[in-house]
Amino acid sequence: MNSALSLWLFYLLCVVFAPILVLGTIRKTKARLQNRIGPPLLQPLFDLVKLCRKSETLSKTMCGIFRLASVISLADMLLIAWIAPWLCYKPGPDSADIFLIFYLFALTRMFTMLGALDSGSAFGAFGASREATLSLLVEPAALLGFISIGALTGSSDLLQILSFSNAQLSGSPGIWLLVGTAVLLANLVESSRMPVDDPTTHLELTMVHEAMILEASGRNLALIEYTHALRMTILLGLSVQCFMRAIPSIWNAEPAVQGLINLTGIFFLAVLIGIFESISVKLQWRKVPEFIAYSLTMSLLASLIAIGGRAMK
């Protein structure tokens, strides 16, 4: 009972603080690479608290779906955090269907886009249009990756796909590397990170996510920012889970060690994203599909392994 309680506590702490720390880590890394000291790691949390104390400005054009969107998105993201195995240690349901998780992500995306269109602002609408385009390209890549591992394990349940006791997959680190990379690349696009979208420019006209939430303010903005960070953290967690399985020695490690590696892996990837954002430039919008194509390539290779995999065994 006591251990179950501490598990719950740990999980809640992770849900609340991991997204904030991931954001903080990325910012800190970028600042250090620019020879700045940078804001403290918990700065995103301070920002959220400050936003919560501010009042909200709403457009007269809005019909209410704008605020509904942020509420539903957060509820949905918390549900995903509850279902999806992005942490090794997690109290939660004993099944996590991969299609369900993808369509729950779609729920958030759809409401975010609708919220962006609600104000009648062209910024939000163009952001929504771009988001729709990106998700259209990225979704098959991430889905296909997980599906190809699923085909090898014979289940579409993520918990079974990722279970360490699954001996069938222990011998093929290649497929895990491919899928992890595919999900990581997809995450860069989904979370509007660097080569696709620059979250730090001042010009909303060129952006995707920031353009969609341009009209948000106060607590509403706090909800949206937190949801966005949580989404990125969950996806990072999923790719870390894949990468962990590519290293044979982790398969037989203690569960506690696995959990620790998982958590540190998330922050390691956050540092990597920070470094990548410092050395790369934002792609021209029309070149973005060429970047996303690499994510699909990884998944296609993984699916080739899955198609032939059983025959080669």
Binding site: C52, E56, S121, G218
Partner: peptide, 26 residues
């Protein structure tokens, strides 16, 4: 159920109490 109840909770305890003002779109 969980989507509905979580949305309702977030709205009731977080968003409903915030001060708002109406203004034109940016």
């Amino acid at each position: 159920l969980s989507l509905f109840s979580m949305s309702a909770l977030i709205y009731m305890f977080f968003l409903k109490t915030s001060r708002t003002r109406k203004y034109s779109t940016w």
